[in-house]
Every structure is written in structure tokens, then in C-alpha cells.
Design a protein around this nucleic acid. Sequence first.
DNA 1: GCATGATCATGC
DNA 2: GCATGATCATGC
Length: 465
Amino acid sequence: MIKYDDNSEKSIVTYAKKLIGKSLQDILDLSSTTRIINLKNKGLAGLIIEKEWFGIEQNSSQLPDFDKVGIELKIIPLKKIKKGIVVKERTKICSMNYITLPDESWEESHAKEKLNKILFVYYFPNSSDILKSKILKIDLWKLSKESGELVLKDNWNFIRNKVIAGYAHKLSGRDTDSLEASPSGTKKQVPQFNTIYSNTAQKRAFSLKQPFTNQRWKELNHVKYESIIETLDITNFDSFEQAVLEKINSLQGKSIFKLSELFDVKIGQSKSRVASVMKKIIGFKSVRSKIKEFEQLGIEIKMINVRKKDYRPMEAISFPAMKLQEFIMEEWEESIFLSMISKILFIPIYKEHTDVKDLDELYLGNVFFWTPSNNEINIIREEWLNYQQEVQDGKCKVTRIPWNTKKGYKEVSCLSKESQTQIIHIRPHGRDSDDRDEDGLGNSIVKQSFWLNTKFMQQLIIKNL
DNA sequence: GCATGATCATGC
DNA sequence: GCATGATCATGC
């Protein structure tokens, strides 16, 4: 009955790899289990793989799943989106104890112990028949500077410091980038450390955020990454954002043409030519390369053309077009839009007038990172929910107004306009007027997307001067 | 000069 | 051919 040698990392991995291509049903068939399977169990895949494949019984102890070699087992559900298959959700690492956390150091922390070596089992859930879900990939991941320890450690310290300060009740998943304090155990309150502000706090767990795990998943699927930590010689993640900013902002005021010379970037005529120069400066080896840290942290980079005299952006900032019918089904907390704005590196490019195109007359502005504040998030959530309501209420229905366009008319919906919101709005974003979407109520409308309002961006740029 | 719906242009 | 970032262009 011995299927693998639990003293050997290699043997465990070899045995794990036999899972690839198997469905949960296949595993059950091979295990001849007499256990009663509850198909409604949320962690069913985990249970089947853990118990029926590896023979690990539920251990309430804090020991790793394969304790002799210190390997933790994590079952990762995937999901399909437009661009392909991605990691579905955050990955819980261990629960938090607010009373003992302050006594821990990163090196000896419970979290690090669980993160040291993880055997990731990636599977694709089959929604119509959960037992048909298949395992796609196996990965033995080890914590190291190269794999992301600097950021995890930094995040862990941030959370610990907040707990020490007595602010456990103010913890939020948005506090950190990669390792987050995620709510666990449905609103359960537990005692907290240094109870001068509140005696209790919501029970939480340390979890890896989706972008972090997803970056690893993509790497496994042969997406090539470069590390900016090496390029910028970063040793302490605390300073990651700072290092990036320092690197760029020392060049503020220089023309894009000058920068392209300084950094020896060949530039063409493409619209993205300014972005190419900037990426090279930040440390991207080539324009199309992906930086590991940016993906792990879920950082988006956005260029923004700005009128120099009053810092007014030439345009609002767009995001990819959405599918209205998917949008109205989304939960705010899990929404695509929220994930796209969690952290953005804005690179303002100053110009005197709208019509300036010459690279000699475009100047690098004040670069900054933006993570929405609590206040901003509240407004954005409200506006987002309001748009969801508007779409559900059929406000995508359009009326044609005679206009001097190709078709001789323009189509106007009843959705709130940019001038009626504070931070975000919805607006057409198709190739042309024939690039359409349906709202599920029988209305056809040009594809829409979210945009960050011009005025809001102007305020943000000024605030970050 | 702004607001907003329309559309371009590159790159995959 | 499509998605996306970027920008146009009308009319007030």
C-alpha cells in the first residue's frame, strides 16, 4: 500500500506527477475508498487529493502535510477567462493568531514555515460535474529571494506591525500586495493584541493573493519573466516602490527624445513608443518582457498624457472592454475592475498642447504608484454598484441622434456620464460602432469599458507632485 | 474648451 | 480579425 516514500521529496513529487490528467473520479476509482463523499463540500477536490491520493489524514496539528520533508500541499482551482486559464482565487496559508503573532519573527513564523515548500496541485473545476474536474499541473515551489520572499516578508511584517499597534480590527486585504490578511470564518470575532482600540477583531488568515499564485502558474506555462530586483539591485522589498520611483523620477523633466538617447532605445512611430522608452528605463529588458515582481504584485502600468499648465490629462484612462452580462453578475469584491485598480504605476507625460507629437516636446512627469485609499474605494464601489444597477435597469438602451458621423447618427444610452460621477465612469470602447455587446435585456450597445475620470486623474497627479 | 460618443492603429 | 491603448471630432 505504500505509494511513495514520505522521507523523500523526489518520491513525493514523482508520485504527485501521476495526478496530471486524472479527474477526481479517477482518483476515487483507484482508491477503493469506503468514505462517503459529499459532493456539496467546498473543499472536495482538496479532500480527495489529500486523503485518497496521498493518504494524508486530516491533521489538526500545525505540521506541514508532508511533515518529514516540510512540504505543504495546496490545491489550486483554475478558471477560464478571455485570455486563457488563470488561478481562480487567493490561497489560504494559515490562520492568524493576533495574540501570538507579535512574538513571532519572520524567520520563525508560522506563515514562513507553511510557505517554505509548497506542492501546488493545479486543477480545473468542472462546474456541471465536480468529479470530472481534472488535475492539470504539479509544481514543487520553494520560497527564496528569487521566488518572491522579499515581498512576502515585507507584507508579513506590515500585517504584524498593524497587529502590534492594536489595529487588528482595521486589517484589510488591500493593505498588502502579495501576502494578505484575508477574512476567514464568516465574521467571527477573536481577541486581539494590545486592546486599547477594540477588544476583538475579525478572524483572518494569511493568504497568497491571486496575482502572486497566478504569476507562478503562468511561469509554469512557459511565460518568460525578468526580475527587476536584480536590475535595480533591490535587497529590501520595503524599498521596492521607492527604488522604482527613484530610478524614474531622477529623470523627471527630460524629454522623451532625450531619454531614448540616454537609454539607447530605438523608437519607431507606433503609439506605444513612449511606453517603450519608459519600460526600458524602469528596467524592462525589452518592451514585451514581463517583470515578475509587477505581476506578483498585480501592478498595472499606465501612461497618461497631461497638459503641462494645469496637469489636466488629455483623456480619461481606459480599461479593457467588458462583457455587460458578466459585469452584472459580478460581486464587487471579486470583480475584474477591482483587481485592475489594486495598484497602478502612473507615468504622466507632460506636453504643452494637445497636438504636440514631437518626442522632443514630450516630457517625463511625476511618476507615482496609486492604490485607492479607503475613501476612494468607497466611492468607486458605490459608483460601480450604481452602474451595475443601471445596466440591470436597462439603461443601455440607446437612442439614435442625427450626427455628423460615418453612419449619420450617434447612439446615446442612459448610463451616467463622466460628469455625473466622481472617479469612474462607463463609456463606449469598441473598434467602431459595429463592435457591439448585449445587456441581456435585448439591448445592443457598442462595447463598453470602465474609465478613470479626467478630473479625478488631474487631482491625483497634482496630489503626487 | 469641454464632454462624450466614435474611431483609429498597432500588435498579437 | 480581434483586443486594447490611445485619441479624434462634433457640437454646445
